[in-house]
């Protein structure tokens, strides 16, 4: 897991991605804000969505509990 540790806590990249998703953002937005490679953002978003920490609508993602899409 790149964004989530085995105990469910967020890794540094997971925290950075979640912070970038306080407002709805695309994969490319998140890559730009965090400095992570796009493939890592896509992989991380899958983890965060599966963990219900992020939701997706169309091409945009947002942290669950942050402002709605």
């Amino acid at each position: 897991m790149a964004c989530l540790n085995a105990d469910g806590t967020l890794s540094a990249s997971g925290r950075a991605m979640l912070a970038a998703l306080e407002r709805p953002a695309t994969e490319e937005d998140v890559a730009s804000v965090t400095g992570l490679a796009l493939f890592r953002v896509r992989s991380g978003l899958r983890e965060l969505v599966a963990a219900d920490l992020v939701s997706q609508q169309g091409e945009r993602f947002v942290a669950t509990g942050a402002q709605s899409l």
Partner: peptide
């Protein structure tokens, strides 16, 4: 070593 990746994660590159 950087998480679970799919080939499709690299699309566009």
């Amino acid at each position: 070593t950087q998480g679970t990746v799919r080939l499709s994660d690299f699309r566009g590159s």
